[in-house]
Simulated assay, not measured.
Amino acid sequence: MKTLTVFTPTYNRAYLLPRLYRSLKGQSCKDFIWMIIDDGSTDETLQLVEKWKGEGLVDIEYFYQENQGMSGAHNTAYQHIKTLYNTCIDSDDMMPGNGVELILRSIKSVDDTKDIAGIIGLDADVSGKVLGTLMPTGIESTTLNELHRKDKVTGDKKLVYKTEVMREIEPYPVYPNERLVPLSHKYLLADQKYKMIPVNEIFCLVEYQEDGSTRNMLKQYRRHPKGFAYARITRINLEKGLKEKFKNAIHLVSSGLFSGDYKSWFKSQHTLLVLAAIPFGVLLNLYIRLKTKKNQ
């Protein structure tokens, strides 16, 4: 059995997947499985995968599902992963030639550590420039949330988790006519019980696409309000600082206005805080409507 699963949710990305495939077949370490979660593609994705399987250069597992969005694809991946560790490499990203080798070398220290969920590495652009800041020195272990809030680390980072940890945390809910619950929701839940080891090594090469979720976040807020509300309620309950709780309360109000589910405002442990955030949530909602008007 291989040690690592690299899983890739994809939807109509046949024009980008060959680049990721080239980076994976060129890995210096082959101790990994590439799991492709095809989230309802109608392009040439399946034909490409069958061709690559025939080449036998990468150990590939392929799963097709009706379109459920990014969080639904993550649910499917966690259901099927059999390796000890996993990491998500998106369809528009790549791995450096020694990416798998660096992950497996760095993660050896967490094998028998019960309170460590995995490691956090770096993302870089295609030229190799690290996105955001490096990991602070002198920190043996931390949580993803503390890394961003307390240590002020910025930029996307690559997460490598023990598969058993991801399996014990509840799946992302799937809402009718919605396709996204913020992936950070599951990581925040993991933070409540486990820590991660930060690593100053580049695990992933990123190139943001015009049709990617990162470049379209305001549209995502509008299209998936129940999924975002679900995540905001959790953050209101679990964030330690009042400022962060209030910020998420503002977003919860806005999401409730988009979905019409005003009952969501009363589902956190801090109802008065959410009610105090209503004027600000209304303003945020109007701002998002204005910014996304042309796309509706």
Results as ranks from 00 to 15, higher is better:
I139D: 00
G212P: 15
R223P: 03
L46V: 12
W52R: 12
F258A: 12
K30F: 13
Y64D: 04
L286P: 04
N216D: 07
P173G: 04
Y85V: 10
V100T: 06
I37D: 04
P198Y: 07
G128A: 00
Y175P: 00
L286G: 07
Y85D: 08
I233H: 00
I120H: 00
H80V: 12
Y78A: 02
D92F: 15
K294P: 05
E101I: 08
Q79C: 07
L48N: 08
E101H: 15
L144P: 04
N98Q: 07
D125C: 04
V49Q: 01
A229G: 05
V181G: 06
G56E: 01
G97Q: 11
Y64M: 09
T133E: 02
L17K: 07
F7K: 01
A276F: 03
S28D: 09
A249C: 09
A73V: 14
S255Q: 14
L144I: 10
M35Y: 07
N75D: 08
A190M: 13
G99Q: 06
H80A: 09
R22H: 07
M1W: 02
V58Q: 15
V206M: 05
I197A: 15
G97C: 10
P176L: 05
A73F: 11
T3Q: 15
D125H: 02
S213E: 07
R235S: 03
S255H: 12
T87R: 04
N98H: 11
C204R: 14
V130C: 00
M196F: 10
M70D: 06
K193T: 15
V174W: 05
R222V: 13
I288M: 09
N285I: 05
K157W: 04
D151R: 11
P279L: 12
S254T: 03
D43I: 12
A276Q: 02
R235E: 01
V130S: 01
T154W: 01
F203R: 00
L290N: 13
P173K: 07
F246S: 03
L290C: 12
E140G: 08
I169R: 11
V174Y: 04
R105L: 11
P136S: 01
P225D: 08
F32H: 11
V253H: 05
G260F: 03
S141G: 10
D123L: 02
K219C: 13
R223F: 08
R22S: 05
N248K: 02
K193N: 14
H80W: 09
L20E: 04
S259I: 06
P182L: 13
V253D: 02
